[in-house]
Design a protein around this nucleic acid. Structure first.
Lengths: 221, 221
DNA sequence: CCAAAAGTGTTAGCCGTACACCCATGT
DNA sequence: ACATGGGTGTACGGCTAACACTTTTGG
């Protein structure tokens, strides 16, 4: 049971970036290396409940806005000692939140990961790939964004998560047409350096939803 | 460890349809109901090897052209008795193959499933959904089609798997532009009732490949 | 008045569907 | 010849990226 929990951090700073939550191992094997948070499954819980419970020790549970299954890693020699199977999860934390962290735990930018324990490096890559894909055809962005936001803020978040520049103009139109985001009617205040005040939006649903099911080969009609 | 193995059967008959491989339980609990093939993991194998081994008892291994992980089902009460976690897989068998089956095992059309044991019904639905999605943006069709085929044959296969009519003209163009299929240069013989002989194609790769990664929000350039 | 930030309008290209039309073969 | 199935060409609409232009604020 391992979770790759992501957050876009430093929104507003010159370069907001996608970060993943890691803790540093104190004991052998792989002492000093960084690992994904997780733990063992109990007899009376399913996988998702178990991950939620494990994560409660690292971040405030209410901050984890989305959690979904990824792949199972089952190579018999993936960790030394007793045979262990790891079921991995993708977790997302909205941007402005700053949960308290235990001393051995830190956010790390995904494009500059520290030495990783066992097979946790590939696990993070796999999770990022899934996140990038789902940003395109689902409303999963709600779990990375504040409840209310300007389009330019959302652009920063998408841009950091996707790893490439995003045009705010087009992002707004795409997400509005798909009914993923909705205007609240209110506007934000201008910054110190002036500029037109931004209209505020929120995600229409705060539940996971597939928005653009058919990329190709869609049914006739 | 459970596998949902699919094949498009009765190609050439009026209505080719997507079928899934099931076996009928002889013992309690759920005696008489139909279940997905599978078994338990050994200490020295990973999940994929284990599924391959289990399937070897049901179908000729060489016939399974594609195998991939799906979700894990972990509800503590999903089966009575000892707590069991099921990791599910998607398997595909090419169309013309007719593997020998044990007496308790049969192909069932997915749109008319028999009474299913435990939570195996939702598992099949989940697997079908994944198959449908991947037919659009990957070359996964290679695992359902013969090595050489006419476009109209491929249309029948896609149509059965997707569950809706597919235009042969457009299927050809889409898959050719993405370089998923290639002309062999040879042609099939005409049927008894005449008609122009069909050009034969094959899949360019017989390994799984993502062909249309970005449905939307693609990087600039 | 000017700079900065947000929002709008317009264009252009790609992609996939729909459909009409042409081609090759058997009876 | 004609029916049958295969293949090509074209038009249309939807979608998104790119970018110039207008609007609204603070200094």
């Amino acid at each position: 049971m391992l979770a790759a929990v992501f957050q876009v951090r430093a929104v507003g700073s010159p370069k907001p970036a996608l970060h993943v939550l890691l803790w540093q191992r104190a004991l052998k094997p792989e002492a000093g290396k960084w690992a994904l948070p997780g733990g063992s499954l109990r007899h009376d819980e399913d996988l998702t409940s178990s991950v939620r419970r494990q994560l409660a020790e690292k971040v405030d549970l209410r901050e984890v806005a989305h959690l979904e299954q990824l792949a199972v890693f089952s190579d018999p020699s993936r960790v030394p000692g007793t045979r262990t199977i790891a079921s991995t999860f993708l977790g997302l934390v909205p941007s402005p939140a700053t949960p308290e962290l235990p001393p051995d735990t830190r956010w790390h930018p995904v494009d500059n990961l520290p030495p990783m324990a066992f097979d946790h490096g590939p696990m993070v890559e796999h999770a990022v790939a899934r996140l990038v894909a789902k940003l395109s055809y689902t409303n999963i962005g709600f779990a990375l964004a504040p409840t209310e936001f300007a389009v330019s803020t959302l652009r920063d978040i998408y841009s950091a998560a996707l790893g490439h520049p995003v045009d705010a103009t087009n992002l707004q139109r795409v997400l509005e047409r798909r009914n993923v985001i909705t205007r609240t009617g209110t506007t934000a205040r201008s910054g110190r350096s002036g500029g037109r005040p931004a209209a505020l939006y929120r995600f229409t649903d705060s539940r996971y939803r597939v928005t653009d099911e058919f990329a190709a080969l869609r049914p006739p009609g």
